[in-house]
Design a protein around this nucleic acid. Structure first.
Lengths: 270, 270
DNA sequence: GAGTGGTCTAGACCACTGT
DNA sequence: CAGTGGTCTAGACCACTCC
């Protein structure tokens, strides 16, 4: 006789269901059997079935909706953000003429999608620097800042691919009214172009990358389960005079984002 | 009368306990009250208490050990890996003499800890390239590879700060027996120095960063809960002739790692 | 109103840890 | 051995969605 399976039964059920999802027997978008149905068919209690489903949710395979049911998730578009090239690419684009810039933005650069496939959202406000932002921007506590929140999503998936929270010193920006107009962002040209209109040239961009659990808001917006981490990039832009001109926090769903950095090394002297 | 708290009671309990941990009333390392005690004192069922504790575990605040109890975690040492500088720094070190190299390795460079605070572990084996590694190293399926697993931990925390899985084509490496000797790794000098002894100079290193749930082994080794993500870096080293000479997967606990990348931008022509 | 997932209870047995 | 966390059961009520 075979030795019995030693794993907990809820995990066995979770893996059975996972196999059915992977094989296409439970295709994306379909409503899963309800918890009571699964309990009946598997011979387990509803509690154990719920444990199995919690596991599937942590794996990012299903989404539960109260009152409606549990759905199999579509495999998500994976996004590669190649920041090393991206930043230089954005800088080079600044000097192109507007017709050229309008053709493609950075998200298309990342995803290969065209502008018709994408939806944009922007939201501006004025805030005062809290302790963290004051330190990041190297300004005094309470300094007025322009806060810009924006996200981009694919038309085929409702959830955004990234959400950005960008902060700039308000007085830096006040000279160019375009920068205060939500309708003018981020096209055409991106932030580097807008800074260019203020006579600012970037010298360096530093990225700090972390992983952390999403806030409830972020989980909602990015359509991930609270158990799935987000990847965050804090991007600090420094201009040629050494001043920090923008700090942006970019939040991405950890289950479908790859960040790519390339390092060219200096040659040894032979 | 106050309107009642609308949140689930297990979450209220989780937040009460969180507050006690944050305030120091439940200091790091201490054994928490057992689940039955908490059930009695809170008036909830053990199931609800377990839900509260699951939440605390996902927040990374406590660690449950079967048969022993649930402990409050110590806040972890955060590690900043500055890969942009690190790789060039490693390359520059190759040409220094051995006495100089022995003084510090890359982990000290990251953490600011001295060599006396650190413990090392290494483990070598020969494997054949699977589909993924064959593609990453651009070799044929089944090509013999040297697989090196190593980790470094602080003496004050048992869990490693990083775990690396490094793969090199075996025939590339066979010429230098030092590279096959676990005792000789990674000190002194690191991989770049060992490649130097084979006449190999690196030209470029690419990093691909992802976040994902840990495997059960990784959760165990890094001492994180299965609900806490790991950050992974796939580091691909390319030599001056364009050949991929090493692929390394570096796995780090997501709750205490920051990756830092710095980009110097080219100046506009004025 | 019927069905769904979210919360909650009061039990039970198990594997594992300490003594 | 007693105590711990891990699994599991068979119920219950709730808020929510859809018809």
């Amino acid at each position: 006789m075979q030795s019995r399976d030693w794993r907990p039964r809820y995990l066995q059920l979770a893996e059975e269901l996972r196999a059915k999802i992977m094989s296409g027997e439970l295709p994306p978008g379909i409503l899963m059997p309800s918890e009571t149905e699964l309990a009946d068919s598997s011979g387990l209690s509803r509690t154990s079935v719920r444990n199995a489903i919690r596991q599937l949710r942590e794996w990012g395979l299903v989404r539960a909706e109260q009152g409606r049911g549990t759905y199999v998730r579509a495999p998500r578009q994976r996004v590669r953000r190649r920041n090393t090239e991206r930043y230089q690419w954005e800088k080079d684009r600044v000097l192109l003429d507007e017709a050229e810039r309008l053709k493609t933005g950075a998200t298309e650069h990342d995803t290969g999608l065209t502008v018709d496939d994408l939806k944009f959202h922007a939201e501006y406000s004025q805030v005062n620097a809290d302790e963290e932002m004051a330190a990041a921007l190297r300004v005094d506590l309470g300094t007025p800042l322009l806060r810009r929140v924006y996200w981009t999503s694919s038309r085929h998936e409702n959830a955004p691919l990234t959400v950005s929270y960008s902060y700039l010193p308000y007085d830096l920006v006040a000279e160019n009214p375009d920068l205060l107009d939500e309708g003018k962002e981020p096209w055409p040209g991106g932030t580097q172009h807008q800074l260019y209109t203020l006579g600012i040239e970037l010298d360096r961009i530093d990225d700090e990358i972390r992983a952390r659990p999403p806030s409830p808001d972020e989980a909602e917006l990015l359509d991930i389960d609270p158990g799935v981490s987000v990847l965050t990039v804090r991007k600090t832009s420094v201009d040629t005079s050494g001043r920090v001109v923008e700090v942006a926090d970019v939040v991405m769903p950890g289950d479908r984002t790859e960040l790519v950095y390339s390092h060219k090394l200096q040659r040894w002297k032979t």
